[in-house]
């Protein structure tokens, strides 16, 4: 059985999915790529918008898209360092 993904890993996967689509993605694609339930996805999107990692845009024909902000790109670049820091100093969040 595969190991349950942690919060940071899920955030990394969501942001990575947006980056791999050229920085902008439709909600349905993101839901498929991130492998989360609709409810969980909504919670993470809300958190990522609040943190300024992504922005919600109105695309053509009023379709909604999510775009990666510069802070989101920074998170992806620093993700490995963040994980190594947490692992080295034993700072994982409680399950």
């Amino acid at each position: 059985m595969s190991k349950k993904r942690g919060r940071l890993q899920i955030i990394h996967d969501i942001l990575g999915a947006i980056r791999d689509k050229g920085g902008t993605i439709k909600p349905t694609h993101l839901l498929y790529k991130s492998n989360l339930s609709h409810q969980m996805m909504g919670e993470y999107i809300k958190e990522l918008k609040e943190k300024g990692f992504i922005t919600e845009d109105e695309g053509k024909k009023r379709s909604k898209t999510f775009s990666l902000s510069s802070k989101g790109y920074e998170y992806l670049a620093e993700y490995r360092t963040v994980v190594r820091f947490i692992e080295s100093f034993g700072l994982e969040e409680e399950a």
């Binding site: 360092t81 947490i86 700072l91």
Partner: peptide, 18 residues
């Protein structure tokens, strides 16, 4: 300060306290 930098990205309370 490095822990604070990591906290800003991760928003984990344990890192802030550390």
């Amino acid at each position: 300060f490095y822990a604070y930098k990591v906290f800003k990205l991760s928003r984990q309370k344990s890192i802030l306290l550390f």
